[in-house]
Amino acid sequence: MLDDTDRRLLRHLQADPGLTNAELSERCGLSAASCWRRIEAMTAQGIILSHEAEIDWAALGYGVEVSLRFTLDKTQPRAFDEFIAAAREVPEVLEIQTFLGRVDLRLLVIARDLPHYQEIYRDRILTLPHIADVEALMHIARVKSDETLPL
């Protein structure tokens, strides 16, 4: 179970993931060794999943983001597995989500521009197996993007 010190560590990590162990320990009033042990313990427990760099796609020339919602032909016994395996091979697919309900899966796809998206859609997306229906939702603006938990 997390104590107040663990929660304080997580709050600071969420606010600034780039903090060094020394900076984090100072902000939380811990020794560097104690801070490191707590972070390692929370990582081992699966509470902290990773330490990643967040990259701005637009700064690298990717200006188009599309959410594609799929309904699969579920008469095929391996439809989900085969679709997911093939979708993982498309480099522009950044995220794959599965759902219960009318929509089976959602893919987040990025492209440099609309002609590039059109190429990806025709040559890679529409060739994915077991598609019964697909709906494209063009991203216009990110209103809120926050993975910070209320700790």
Rank of each mutant, 00 (worst) to 15 (best):
L19P: 09
A32V: 15
K144P: 12
I84N: 05
D6Y: 04
S25G: 01
L128G: 03
Q118I: 02
V64D: 06
T71C: 13
H12V: 09
L9V: 07
N21E: 05
Q97T: 09
S145M: 13
T5L: 09
V143Y: 05
R69D: 15
T75E: 14
S34T: 11
A79V: 01
E26N: 12
E82D: 12
Y117V: 08
V109N: 07
R112Y: 00
H12R: 15
I84V: 13
W36T: 15
I96H: 06
Y62A: 06
L105I: 08
D113F: 00
E147V: 10
L24T: 04
F83A: 07
A33Y: 04
G61P: 00
E52G: 03
L137W: 10
A58Y: 13
A41H: 10
A59F: 10
E135P: 10
D16W: 00
P150F: 13
E82V: 01
A85P: 00
L60A: 03
S67D: 15
H116C: 11
I125E: 06
G46I: 08
Y62W: 06
R78M: 05
D146H: 01
S145N: 15
V143S: 03
S34M: 03
D6P: 02
L49V: 12
I110V: 13
Q76H: 15
R8P: 04
I39W: 11
R88W: 03
Q76R: 11
H116I: 01
M42S: 02
R106Y: 06
R38C: 01
E40S: 09
T148D: 13
L49F: 07
Q14P: 12
H12K: 14
R112I: 02
L149S: 03
A58I: 08
S145A: 15
D146F: 04
E135C: 11
E95S: 11
E23G: 10
L107H: 02
L24Y: 04
A22M: 13
I84C: 03
G101W: 04
L13M: 11
F83Q: 05
D73M: 00
T5I: 15
I125M: 01
L72K: 00
L105N: 10
C28K: 02
A79T: 01
P129S: 04
D146G: 06
L68Y: 06
T148H: 05
H51K: 12
V109Q: 02
D81T: 11
D123V: 11
W57N: 14
L13I: 01
E54H: 07
R7E: 15
L149N: 06
M1Y: 07
L24N: 06
L2E: 07
D6T: 03
C35W: 09
A32D: 13
T75I: 14
D73C: 02
L13H: 01
F83V: 01
P150L: 15
R124A: 12
V64T: 04
V103Y: 09
E119S: 15
G61K: 09
I131M: 02
Q14N: 12
Y117P: 00
